[in-house]
């Protein structure tokens, strides 16, 4: 391949990603999820809030594709709108956690020893706290809602990004090209953002992709425990909870609530693995 043909790195990265069947499957699942979330209003056959007491616990049929719940609400429609919540919570909290983790981690890895120790102490403290306990405690203190869910997720996951950013930054700081930059008069900020950041970003995308389903599961888990979203919100966790309450009579509720969670987890995990192969600069060779 000549240099002129290879117009940009993005082109090759996407091109290589698409040649991996696992990645294609992952991207298909994620694309479906995004489509469902964006066009939920158009696709959903029913209003997700509409009660229909006469059709409570309807089994799956052509009228209600995935049946109805205890209040007669259409499960398929609720799951479609649930995709919106899952994506919103997932992207917002992963984005926030990654951003905070990145900043703190790079500062810890690049700054003086005492600052590194202080930030590491913060990471360790937060990491040591079990997610679900923190979720229950904060859920009890704060009003239920998406904001609380996002806060809990950010608090419990940003240290993971921070550790990766710190280790990467430390390893990179010892590299000769960073010494060379220093010797050429680059300021610390310039070295950090221009030279270290692009090297850290690859692993970060991978980590974020793998973490996204975890976050969606935390949201579902919190909603399942009743400390997540406000009652009535069509989150997947809330659907699971409703299904769990009536599992003896209407098993399809909990099954259909679980399927999207499984699919999304698989999709993002596959994506993360394929991204790792594509984004590693050492593996990026001309074909």
């Amino acid at each position: 391949m000549s240099i002129a043909e290879r117009s940009s790195f993005k082109y090759t990265a996407v091109g290589r990603l698409m040649s991996d069947p696992l990645a294609v499957a992952a991207v298909t699942i994620i694309a479906l999820l995004v489509l469902c979330a964006v066009f939920a209003d158009a696709i959903a056959p029913y209003d997700y809030k509409a009660l229909n007491v006469r059709e409570r616990f309807a089994p799956p049929s052509f009228v209600h594709l995935l049946g109805t719940d205890n209040l007669g609400r259409d499960t398929f429609s609720r799951l479609l709108f649930g995709a919106r919540i899952a994506l919103f919570v997932g992207l917002t909290s992963v984005g926030l956690a990654a951003l905070i983790g990145l900043m703190l981690g790079m500062v810890a890895g690049f700054g003086p020893r005492w600052l590194d120790n202080a930030i590491l102490f913060l990471f360790d403290t937060l990491r040591a706290y079990p997610t679900i306990i923190l979720a229950l405690a904060l859920g009890a203190l704060l009003p239920p809602g998406l904001g609380t869910v996002i806060l809990v997720v950010v608090l419990t996951t940003f240290s993971e990004y921070g550790r990766v950013a710190r280790t990467q930054t430390q390893a990179l700081s010892a590299q000769e090209f960073i010494d060379a930059e220093r010797a050429m008069g680059a300021s610390p900020a310039r070295i950090l953002f221009m030279h270290i950041l692009p090297n850290v970003l690859g692993p970060f995308f991978i980590l974020a992709a793998i973490n996204l389903p975890v976050v969606i599961t935390i949201e579902a888990g919190m909603s399942f425990l009743g400390v997540g979203v406000a009652p009535g919100t069509p989150s997947w966790g809330a659907t699971l909870k409703d299904g769990f309450d009536y599992i003896r009579n209407t098993p399809w509720l909990i099954v259909s609530g679980g399927i999207p969670l499984v699919l999304v987890t698989l999709g993002f995990t596959f994506l993360g693995e394929s991204l790792r192969d594509v984004l590693d600069p050492k593996l990026r060779k001309e074909r």
Partner: peptide, 20 residues
């Protein structure tokens, strides 16, 4: 640095940023 005094290091393999 860079303007008045500049350096070439030993190892050409690690002297350049790999992702730029």
């Amino acid at each position: 640095r860079g303007r008045d005094v500049s350096v070439v290091f030993q190892d050409p393999m690690t002297g350049l940023n790999p992702v730029l």
